[in-house]
């Protein structure tokens, strides 16, 4: 690996850790507030940790998505203006996302083990996968925002909210929806992976011609 690649990789790794720490601090703050407000209630420790856990899995996805959107037009632009190559940026961003997700996953897993809830680790795995997926989506959105402006970001959020609430409504009426058998889950997972790989290809191509904002 060339010297520049190593330096870029190190830089982005550090950025991933820093993002994790920032989110961790945010969660600690929220957690502390919850502990204080629910102090004395029955099982409050259990419920607070459940809340933190749920928030954690959501944040893992949301934060990675958000910062990925910021990447092409802002963070990566700065790095590009300092002489990094586009391929260093491509791999760097992946390293940043994976570092973030791994740190986060380890933290949540530790928390789950310490609160005697090891079964939650499965959800953590799923969140990690979704987070990585949304990270890639975020970068594509980020490139679109760079080209067409912030409106793209807003449109995307509306779509996601729409799909999200739509899914929630569907889940309410579960009897009208077939339960996901193992095979279906598998298919969805494979589709997700395929889509992810396709997105990375798209990102690579978008990145290739990128310019400093």
């Amino acid at each position: 690996m060339s010297d520049l690649s190593k330096r870029a990789a190190k830089y982005y790794l550090v950025q991933g850790v820093r993002l994790f720490i920032a989110v961790l601090l945010g969660m600690t703050f929220v957690g502390t507030v919850w502990i204080l407000t629910h102090f004395g209630e029955t099982n409050y420790v259990e419920s607070v940790f459940y809340r933190i856990f749920s928030l954690g899995t959501v944040f893992m996805i949301m934060m990675n998505f958000m910062y990925s959107v910021y990447s092409p037009g802002w963070y990566d632009s700065m790095v590009l203006s300092m002489g990094a190559r586009r391929k260093d940026i491509f791999w760097g961003v992946l390293i940043k996302q994976i570092t973030f997700i791994v740190c986060y996953a380890i933290f949540l897993s530790l928390m789950s083990i310490l609160t005697s809830r090891p079964e939650r680790i499965k959800s953590i795995m799923m969140s990690s996968a979704v987070s990585l997926f949304m990270g890639a989506a975020g970068i594509i959105v980020g490139h679109a925002v760079k080209k067409y402006g912030r409106i793209v970001y807003h449109i995307f959020l509306i779509i996601v909210l729409g799909v999200g609430s739509g899914s929630l409504v569907m889940l309410e009426h579960r009897e009208h929806v077939f339960t996901l058998g193992n095979a279906t889950k598998y298919v969805i997972a494979m589709a997700g992976l395929l889509l992810f790989v396709i997105m990375e290809f798209v990102i690579y191509r978008l990145n290739k011609k990128s310019m400093v904002a």
Binding site: S2, D3, Y70, W74, M82, R150
Partner: peptide, 20 residues
């Protein structure tokens, strides 16, 4: 090109705003 890029610094004007 790493070799060429390592010899160059282009320090641009900073911007107080980003698109976000």
């Amino acid at each position: 090109n790493e070799k060429s890029l390592s010899r160059i610094c282009y320090s641009r004007e900073l911007s107080p705003v980003t698109m976000f």
